[in-house]
């Protein structure tokens, strides 16, 4: 018996981390090893990045393939970004930014494929990445400037009386980077996927209501398709923004304003 109850799953269900394979052992405090959808898609992302580079490597041929040209263009863009943001003397950070960009962009784009999982919609991944970048940048600043790194928290020309207040503000601002970088990526990806999930749920209901409604639903479906395109664009833009901000943080650590 088919009833007509309107039942919609939570659009946030798609972000749940569920284990595919579990391995429990009563050792080391109930040792638990699981392959979750997050882990699987992180592995898929890594293999996609590696596969893309293996394919685009074109067997070391001198004449590039179409894949090679695309990858060379991407490399040139990231290289230009690093030169512009961090400076021509700090191109040593290009491999890091390049790897970061490709991991984030492939994870984002891979998440747009239906029935899949978006790695960057996991707060653990997004915040984990940003916190690790924050820690790395801080260690970089301390290693370059030593104790003088803390001058970063006192803007030049600050009156002595305002120093405690400004140091507090600057410190909070600096610490907020660890969260803001990841939350920006996480929030954008979650928002986009949630919106698409909600809209697709409504559209599915409308498509299956009747032929007339289904035909009329093609109009909002066109908008929905455009939103999917927008979400793909957001995937690219957020990866770019993530890397630009990482470059900016590295530059701050190197030059201290």
């Amino acid at each position: 018996m088919i009833n007509n109850n309107f039942f919609i799953n939570s659009p946030l269900e798609q972000f749940e981390v569920t284990p595919f394979i579990k391995f429990n052992a009563p050792i080391l405090g109930d040792f638990n090893l699981s392959l979750t959808n997050l882990g699987l898609y992180a592995l898929i992302t890594v293999f996609l990045v590696l596969g893309l580079h293996i394919v685009a490597n074109n067997s070391h041929s001198l004449i590039p393939s179409k894949w090679s040209i695309a990858l060379e263009s991407a490399y040139a863009s990231i290289h230009a970004m690093v030169r512009d943001q961090i400076g021509p003397n700090n191109e040593i950070y290009t491999p890091f930014i390049y790897s970061l960009f490709f991991f984030v962009v492939i994870a984002n784009l891979n998440g747009n494929i239906p029935y899949g999982f978006t790695v960057t919609t996991s707060i653990m991944v997004a915040i984990g990445l940003s916190v690790m970048i924050f820690l790395g940048v801080t260690v970089l600043g301390l290693s370059i400037h030593g104790v003088h790194f803390f001058a970063y928290f006192i803007p030049s020309g600050t009156p002595l009386g305002l120093v405690p207040l400004l140091v507090l503000i600057e410190l909070i601002s600096y610490l907020a980077r660890a969260v803001s970088l990841g939350v920006r990526l996480f929030a954008n990806m979650v928002a986009g996927h949630t919106l698409l999930k909600i809209l697709s749920t409504f559209l599915a209901q409308l498509f299956t209501a009747s032929i007339l409604v289904a035909v009329v639903t093609l109009i909002p479906f066109a908008v929905f398709v455009a939103l999917i395109g927008l979400e793909i664009a957001v995937s690219l833009i957020q990866a770019y923004v993530f890397c630009v901000l990482t470059c900016s943080y590295i530059k701050d650590a190197i030059e201290l304003h």
Binding site: I113, P114, S200, F207, G229
Partner: peptide, 19 residues
């Protein structure tokens, strides 16, 4: 099972094909 994910898949393949 044809559900909202199917709608998403159709839309995705349309935009991918168009792009």
């Amino acid at each position: 099972v044809a559900n909202e994910e199917t709608v998403l898949a159709v839309g995705f393949f349309i935009i991918v094909a168009a792009v």
